[in-house]
């Protein structure tokens, strides 16, 4: 049981950056961004290729995050091209399409970066080895959980700070009432692009860490990222609440951990790993439709 808990915590904390990214796009920007299915393996591919090429794992991780930022920028610019001149913030078509296009293009980009569909990272020094030797700890089990938790808390507080700055307020308002914030002199095209870049940088950070933790980067590892991210966001919001931005950032990290717990338990109960995506999708559908169903039932 201890092992399951440590494992789920480890996975939940590695994936929480991705879930925070999905939260930023879905909830803060009101932009359902499908780029994440491509930017997660992008982070893994860039990090993997650089580590295998003999570069420092710190540099490789930073480069992975940087590549994710760029993927977000591309989606932001594509959205500008695809949406018609007059801004209508509730028109999700161009938003979805921009993400789908970037995600699809990234498949090729990721293959090109890696040169093949899978890079093993065994027998090389990854970021956890470096941190471990610096702290004189072996990076497994609870030690790894503690280091990841520290990183998650740092990222959480940086996001918290950012969303409370002047720029952060305009970012929040871009997703909440675009007409208002434009009338207040904010270029929402700019805030949206910056938000997408940050979000995909976070997703790529998860990709980079996943590759280094499981020992390989794979071109297919991003499939279903958006749905897993949504599941984490929704569970976090439902279980831990949304009373303020500072609070909800913690909730979302909690959601990521709970989601990985459920997966660990499902696997323990004998569910096939390949069945998990259907399970996750069902979970998201149920969670998202609860308000609608409840309204219908009340009306009857």
């Amino acid at each position: 049981m201890q092992v399951i808990i440590a494992n789920a915590l480890e996975q939940g904390l590695i994936y929480c950056f991705m879930v925070l990214g999905v939260f930023l796009t879905f909830r803060v920007l009101d932009f359902p961004d499908l780029t994440v299915d491509g930017s997660l393996p992008l982070g893994a591919a860039v990090t993997g290729a650089l580590i295998v090429g003999g570069h420092s794992p710190f540099l490789a991780t930073a480069a992975g995050v940087g590549a994710g930022l760029c993927a977000g920028l591309v989606t932001g610019f594509l959205h500008l091209l695809l949406k018609s001149g007059e801004s209508d913030s509730t028109n999700y078509g161009p938003k979805l399409l921009a993400g789908i296009l970037t995600m699809t293009a990234l498949y090729t980009v990721n293959l090109r970066i890696m040169g093949r569909s899978n890079i093993p990272l065994l027998g090389v020094q990854v970021i956890f080895d470096k941190v471990g030797s610096f702290l004189s700890l072996t990076m497994i089990g609870w030690n790894l959980v503690l280091v990841l938790a520290a990183l998650a808390i740092v990222v959480k507080y940086v996001l918290d700070w950012l969303l409370h700055t002047e720029f952060g307020l305009t970012l929040l308002a871009t997703g909440d009432n675009e007409q208002m914030i434009r009338a207040m002199g904010t270029n929402t095209n700019f805030t949206r692009i910056v938000g997408l870049a940050i979000a995909n940088g976070l997703v790529a950070l998860t990709g980079s860490l996943v590759a280094q933790q499981q020992g390989f980067a794979d071109v297919g590892m991003g499939i279903g990222t958006i749905v897993a991210g949504l599941a984490g966001v929704i569970m976090g919001e439902v279980i831990f609440g949304v009373r303020s931005i500072s609070w909800v950032l913690f909730s979302v990290i909690g959601g990521s951990i709970v989601y990985r717990f459920l997966i660990a338990i499902s696997l323990r109960l004998g569910i096939q790993p390949t069945d998990l995506k259907l399970l996750t999708a069902t979970l998201v559908v149920v969670a998202l439709s609860i308000p609608t169903v409840r309204r219908k039932v009340v009306r009857l």
Partner: peptide
């Protein structure tokens, strides 16, 4: 947000 109109929003609180 409304107090910030007419100037660029920065990274101050």
């Amino acid at each position: 947000i409304s107090l910030l109109r007419s100037r660029r929003s920065g990274l101050r609180r």
